[in-house]
């Protein structure tokens, strides 16, 4: 009996020992956006090699990330959809952008190469509303005088699952089309008036490649990987910038972050001649009170490291690091809000 007690005590001691050793090597937990998951995984891998900090990030979706950080089960949440300052204050949360990406439309049209098709925002909205049904519609023909557009039916492809990619896409359509804003609105999933739904970016990419006459929207990385025939979209300044590092960064730089509170801004339809119109941001959410705790401080250290040294990782994965002016503003925001 005595030996059993000794063994149990020993086991408990070992267990507690393991627990405390985990607690000293700081572990940060996060949950949310699937859009940012590849980057956070790469960052945390590199970061844990340089420091003893481990980041455990679960890509459960933006909605889940918001729910988890509000419930206080994770150190930080990640969402592709920003939360309004009023809601942030009510929940005691802070919000800042982490990385910039883009949503790019792509088509499957015989004889139409990548970057050849030009579309305006309102034309995209009309296609997604199901009002423009054929590729040789006069509105599309006048936008593309140099192209021979076939008399093919348009098949709209959208996401079937709720997604931050969808949020940025429909946010853009709402900004450029009053009818879209009134009839459909915006959210991580909406009631689509037309088309088929693919699960995840890979599902949408597969549908576009399978269906002749299809148009769909994808994260930029999937356009690159699958060599899709992307579409050039007219931006707020009337230009047709190529999707890529320069135009995404231009959008992040020309966006008027300084006029917002808590970085409550969706990057779509950014002003600026070279700004890509459907640029997206992933936001990090963290409890204001957590900044006083070791795990909260470790989380900020991690993102500070990401902003200063994670740039090459981000670009390798087709994300765009935040411009220096923005990271400086985020640092000031942290200082102003630390307890």
């Amino acid at each position: 009996m005595k030996s059993v007690i000794t063994a149990l005590t020993l086991a408990l001691a070992v267990f507690l020992g393991i627990r405390s050793s985990v607690a000293t090597a700081e572990e940060i937990t996060g949950a949310g956006s699937t859009f940012v998951y590849p980057l956070l995984a790469k960052w945390s891998d590199d970061y844990s090699k340089q420091t003893s900090t481990k980041i455990n990030y679960q890509s459960i979706g933006s909605g889940g990330g918001i729910a988890q950080i509000k419930a206080g089960t994770v150190t930080f949440g990640a969402s592709d959809m920003p939360i309004s300052p009023a809601d942030l204050h009510e929940a005691g949360l802070l919000q800042f952008p982490a990385v910039v990406g883009a949503v790019v439309p792509a088509v499957n049209l015989p004889g139409v190469a990548a970057g050849a098709l030009h579309l305006t925002g309102p034309a995209l909205a009309d296609i997604y509303l199901g009002r423009i049904k054929k590729w040789n519609d006069p509105e599309l023909v006048t936008l593309n005088p140099g192209l021979v557009l076939p008399a093919l039916a348009i098949t709209v492809v959208h996401r079937s699952d709720g997604s931050g990619t969808t949020f940025n896409w429909v946010d853009y359509l709402s900004k450029v089309s009053p009818e879209w804003k009134a009839r459909i609105g915006e959210g991580t999933s909406v009631s689509w008036p037309a088309g088929v739904g693919g699960k995840g970016n890979e599902g949408v990419a597969a549908y576009i490649q399978r269906i002749k006459g299809a148009i769909g929207y994808l994260e930029y990385a999937y356009i690159l990987q699958n060599k899709m025939a992307f579409v050039l979209v007219q931006n707020a300044a009337g230009q047709y910038p190529e999707p890529g590092k320069a135009s995404f960064q231009a959008a992040a730089a020309t966006a008027e972050w300084s006029k917002t509170s808590d970085f409550y801004l969706v990057l779509t339809n950014a002003p600026g001649d070279n700004a890509y119109p459907i640029t997206a941001t992933t936001f990090i959410l963290i409890h204001r009170a957590a900044l006083a705790t070791p795990s909260g401080k470790a989380a900020l250290d991690f993102f500070r490291w990401g902003f200063t040294q994670g740039g090459p990782d981000a670009e390798a994965l087709a994300y765009i690091p935040l411009p220096p002016s923005l990271t400086a503003a985020i640092e000031a925001y942290w200082q102003a809000n630390s307890p």
Binding site: G61, G63, G64, S160, D161, G162, G197, K199
Partner: peptide, 8 residues
Amino acid sequence: ANEFTEAD
């Protein structure tokens, strides 16, 4: 299966 994760 499609919508449960982001049913917010």
